[in-house]
Amino acid sequence: MTRVLPRPGLSLLILGVWLILAPAPTLGQVLIGVMLAVALPLATRGFWPGEIRLRRPLVALRLLGVVLGDIVTANLLVARQVLGAPERLRPAFMDVPLGIADPFVSTLLGSIVSLTPGTVSVDIDRGRQVLQVHALHIEDPAATIALIKARYETPLKEIFGC
């Protein structure tokens, strides 16, 4: 099992996406999909970080809901900032200390930060364990950092158990 299918979840995802993209789910397409689902994880084995497991699916669902809501809020906020006077904006770089060592989970946190209000993640510094973030307009950096940690990092830690 581990030799042929090092990542069963990834293989399933590849097969699913292939069948969605294929013009019709014929036997030939299923066969090609299965071949890709076996070959691609084997070929890219060296690039994948250590195995991660979804430990708390319910918390993951709740986080997904929070993030989807925040994406809408983020867009209303960006709309106001873009249309307002640019001189009134106070952009800043901030360093958010990372409590997550796993590269996959910290990248997930970076992506969430980029889509949610006011902030875009710039760099993940693994040496210093810091997520560098740029904010379009910031009043209180410490509060924003605390919010990112409480709202997204804590649930992520809980979900993946790290």
Partner: peptide, 18 residues
């Protein structure tokens, strides 16, 4: 219209995607 690159990044990343 925003004045520097990192500020300009916010618009396309969030608004255009949604």
């Amino acid at each position: 219209r925003l004045p520097d690159f990192f500020m300009r990044l916010h618009g396309p990343t969030k608004a255009t995607t949604l």
